[in-house]
Design a protein around this nucleic acid. Sequence first.
DNA 1: CCTTGTGAACGACTTCACAGCC
DNA 2: GGCTGTGAAGTCGTTCACAAGG
Lengths: 245, 245
Amino acid sequence: MSDELSSDQNHSAKGPPPRSDEAKVAPKAVVNRLSLYLRELQRIEQSGKETVSSSQLGKLLGFTDAQVRKDLAYFGQFGHPGVGYRCAELVAAIRRILGTDREWVVAIVGVGNLGRALLGYKGFRPQGFRVAAAFDSDPSKVGMSFGGVAVEPTTALETTVRERGVTLGLIATAAEAAQETADRLVSAGVVGILNFAPMTLSLPPGVSLVGVDLATELEQLSFSVANSQAAVATEQSDPGPGVAR
Amino acid sequence: MSDELSSDQNHSAKGPPPRSDEAKVAPKAVVNRLSLYLRELQRIEQSGKETVSSSQLGKLLGFTDAQVRKDLAYFGQFGHPGVGYRCAELVAAIRRILGTDREWVVAIVGVGNLGRALLGYKGFRPQGFRVAAAFDSDPSKVGMSFGGVAVEPTTALETTVRERGVTLGLIATAAEAAQETADRLVSAGVVGILNFAPMTLSLPPGVSLVGVDLATELEQLSFSVANSQAAVATEQSDPGPGVAR
DNA sequence: CCTTGTGAACGACTTCACAGCC
DNA sequence: GGCTGTGAAGTCGTTCACAAGG
């Protein structure tokens, strides 16, 4: 399957300007940068500044001012000419766009080194993600608690996920168990999966997937170094230019 | 993106087609997929298959056959018409391209939950990355050992990095310490950094950076779910631009 | 002045479609 | 028959540059 869906139609013949209101789905690269903007804005807000201009924000992240404005403009008009963007306002707007203005209940499957790190990670809560359950098939881990979450046997996955209203699943199992874990999470009602297992998953339409493979990330770095593509990429996705000089 | 290195400047006015030979640097998106192809190929090889066609490989990952062929063609001719690609051959070629046909020596700074997970991660070694050092500023952690690597005080960073020939640094510190850590790694000779701290880093030109922010990844998932952009992409991160200078 | 929002130009990436080879 | 490599066409994303607002 291809990644995008065919969601929106496009078919303007030629003559009249296609006036499609609304519905212009945002490029993935844009959404990626949105997270970066949010992170930076929260830091700026913390420092007491009330507003930022697109060029200031851009400079902090290595983007052009035009890029910043264009990105934000995909979702509405948040700026104030002559002033810039008010941090608090923009932070709220971006969180709304990303869907993190509400709380997402997440479950972690696989309590190995990585699963434990995720259970103990302090950065999720403030961004709207609450880890409410953890599962592992190893009986010796069941009953232990990490980051305030008790480990349950994998057999309890479906019932616990349903009972606690878990909507996102985080897979930190071995590659071999990843697909089955995904299937079970989906059947229990999870609508999005963040996969850390070095394995390609296939999911039914309607379920979102984001994958993070640690070895793969290092490979990207290796290539980058081997080709001296300096550049600075701070996060994921997006091709961006910018080398600096 | 400026994938170009600074080597050549561009400035063709208009007239004659710019004839840049050679030097067509691969799109970053392509390099990203290369890692995915590699992972899949290794699995296929393991299963005993000798060859794969672009359409088979594409189907496994959710890409079109043309995409797979085009991606590989950026780097040379690896296929055999009528046959497909020989797995072993292609695996070797991709590793060479990514630069993982040799061993990279890496160091991890910050031995918190995440740092320990990275130290214990079994997936690095087989892909060409050897973790040779770990540092933490907390004296109570110094001397402990994880994944066979002893934790050293951060004060030893420069000397140890140099002595062991570390070339890549992995930052798993708190956001506040990330920039200073990066600066020290760079000054000790590291040429690439994989940053897990939720913080934008700025590095001198010539040093590569890849960033992974766990909260950010979840935000992408959140957006995806909120917009039902199903998608099955097993990708992981990717680049971002960055500041430099 | 400053800064945003945006059409239009530009360039980057992807898909198509087919010639050539097994 | 099956399959790759690749120009050509098309789509998508970024940069430019400027009108309009505080």
